[in-house]
Nucleic acid binder design. Structure first.
Lengths: 220, 220
DNA sequence: GTCTATACAAGGATAGAC
DNA sequence: GTCTATCCTTGTATAGAC
């Protein structure tokens, strides 16, 4: 791993766990075992580090979502993959950055905080939502054609409903201590499917997907 | 309005819109038309301001949820009030603090950020979730007794499902620019009700509640 | 209760040697 | 590419006058 990547990964870690303002360049430098000014050889400012951290998250997440969807052409399974993929991405991110704080991380918070402050980030984050919305619309389309999903659904609204349920779940599980996300996520997906599908009794299949290794997505 | 309350309201505003670290005591002092050191006469530190801001939000929100629930003893309407109340609280908070930034606010983000950093806050925030969980459980109980809500529901999970849908919606609408929350909130509530109720066709009633004035809840 | 003046610390960033 | 030394700004907080 190059020094540049080490710096980026350390930044990502601190930004996710402590937030941007509570992360200092000294902390990052210490974590990478270099001195503060060396960071400036690789990145032009602290903001630059934030931007690259967020691009890293979004690039990888999009890649993994796209990949997980192609594993099946069954709309129900695709939707399940979509659902699981985002939840798993959050857990994996936590493992990947070596989260040795005992605070759970939530990658969405960082979007909320900085999308309104940095126009450049806002664009990219919105692009991400456009992308996953379009993926979901395609899945719903296919499901309707195959008579698996209700034809009466408002597509736009259903997309919002699905995304907000997933993100709400991640957010809530990091704030409210009494939630055991793993024990209910399958059931919550079944509820979601039941609410949009034409089936009467949705079978309760337990599936665990593995999305492979998280790669560095962006060229420098 | 006393100087103390003015300071608190200004802090709340900045904390919600800019976050804690990006809010300086000078900004607060300017907004209230006093000098920086005068703040220390009323509050012992910047942290003290953060704590009181969050208590203010939670005290008021709990009060309004409790109040909105008592307006009906029909579980469907109570659940709708609950749903609407939290969404409206977020909008009202935005109006109340005189949000002249063009960034939408989301009062839940602040919980996510500081519940893990300040043990005292974590306790209070968890207490809030325990409270609203218990309110929701009661509503579901009543609904089941009155044969309006499915008996097969896992109560714990349903509670999490409901809260995460509401909070996910608020969060998403502040990040993703293409969402018009007001045009879909009623439909989303109907979806929620449809997924837990025994009715086959849920009637589409449009209701707008007014939760009255937001009061200062905490004694100093 | 509010002010002026000021202490003190810390963070981002740059210059320039090696 | 990485370092030491240092600049500069800003933020929290306190002392003490009025």
């Amino acid at each position: 791993m190059t020094t540049k990547n080490k710096i980026l990964m350390a930044s990502l870690k601190f930004f996710l766990v402590r937030g941007y303002e509570n992360t200092t360049l000294s902390m990052i430098a210490d974590a990478v075992n270099i001195k503060k000014p060396s960071i400036y050889y690789h990145f032009k400012s602290k903001e630059d580090l934030l931007f690259n951290s967020i691009y890293f998250i979004l690039d990888n997440l999009e890649k993994q979502i796209t990949h997980s969807i192609t594993k099946s052409d069954n709309p129900k399974q695709q939707l399940e993959s979509f659902f699981e993929c985002i939840l798993d991405f959050n857990s994996k991110l936590s493992l990947m950055i070596g989260n040795d704080f005992n605070a759970p991380i939530n990658f969405i918070t960082i979007f909320q905080l900085y999308s309104n402050r940095f126009c450049e980030l806002s664009k990219r984050i919105n692009e991400y939502y456009e992308n996953i919305s379009s993926i979901l619309k395609d899945i719903i389309d296919q499901g309707q054609k195959k008579k698996l999903i209700k034809n009466t659904l408002d597509k736009e609204m259903t997309v919002i409903d699905i995304i907000s349920r997933i993100e709400g779940l991640i957010a809530l599980s990091t704030i409210y201590k009494s939630i055991d996300l793993n024990s209910i996520r399958n059931q919550l997906y079944e509820n979601l499917w039941a609410s949009i599908s034409l089936e009467n009794n949705s079978p309760k299949t337990k599936k665990f997907f593995n999305y492979g290794h998280i790669n560095l997505g962006r060229k420098w």
